[in-house]
Computed example of a mutant assay.
Amino acid sequence: MAINLQQTSARLNFYMRIKELDVYQLSVLTQTPPETVGCILQGEEYSMDDLVALLKKLPDLNSRWVIYGEGNVFKTEGQAGEHALPPGLKKDRAAYLAEMQSLLHQLEEIEKQKQQQSNLDQLRSKIRDLTKHI
């Protein structure tokens, strides 16, 4: 599965908005150079080692969600999918978080559909080109 740097960036930015962190605060918290954090947050080329090192310093953040979009923003605790609220997240913000996560998932689905449409258009173009030679 390919990793989309822009989506990874969007997810990490989403986490930062929830936690009310800026680039400098995230840099200090994760002991990551601000330039590296900036590259990750802008979806620019960066080393996956840098991303993994940053994610390891955020124990409440679900790294599979950041990288692949799988699961929830925060790591879960308990059984049957009970979600522990991260420290500092008020209960009224939990509903907001769930709604935002749903919207982010919908945006990812739309992006996938756009990519599939683009692939379909390319295939149609190739078929047209091939049928011209028949």
Rank of each mutant, 00 (worst) to 15 (best):
Q122D: 15
R64P: 03
L107I: 12
L55K: 02
G71K: 01
T32W: 02
Y68F: 15
T30S: 09
I127H: 09
F74M: 02
L97F: 05
E44P: 03
L89R: 00
C39H: 15
A95M: 12
L41E: 03
L89V: 08
T8E: 04
L85Y: 03
A2H: 13
E45N: 15
S102N: 06
E35H: 13
L123Q: 07
L54A: 03
R64S: 15
I3Q: 06
N62W: 07
P87Y: 05
D49R: 10
I3W: 03
T36M: 06
K126F: 11
G43S: 06
A95D: 11
E82W: 05
H83N: 12
I3F: 05
H105L: 08
F14R: 00
P34T: 11
K19N: 05
Y96N: 07
T8H: 02
S9R: 01
E20T: 09
G88H: 06
H83G: 06
P59D: 12
G71W: 01
M48F: 09
I134E: 11
D49M: 09
Y24G: 10
M100S: 04
L29S: 09
V52W: 06
M16T: 01
N119V: 05
L107E: 13
L120M: 11
P33I: 06
K75C: 12
L51Y: 01
K91V: 07
L12R: 00
D22E: 10
G69L: 02
A84Y: 07
Q113W: 06
D60R: 04
K19R: 13
I110H: 07
A2W: 12
W65T: 02
T30D: 03
Y96V: 09
F74N: 00
G78V: 02
F14I: 00
P86G: 06
L55W: 02
G81M: 04
L97M: 11
K132D: 08
K75M: 12
L12Q: 00
P34Y: 05
E45V: 13
Y24L: 15
T32I: 04
S125D: 15
K75R: 15
H105F: 08
A94Q: 13
Q25A: 15
N119R: 09
Q116M: 13
A98H: 01
P33S: 08
T36Q: 08
Q25K: 15
S9K: 00
I67W: 03
Q122S: 14
D121E: 14
L61V: 08
V66G: 00
M48N: 14
Q116S: 15
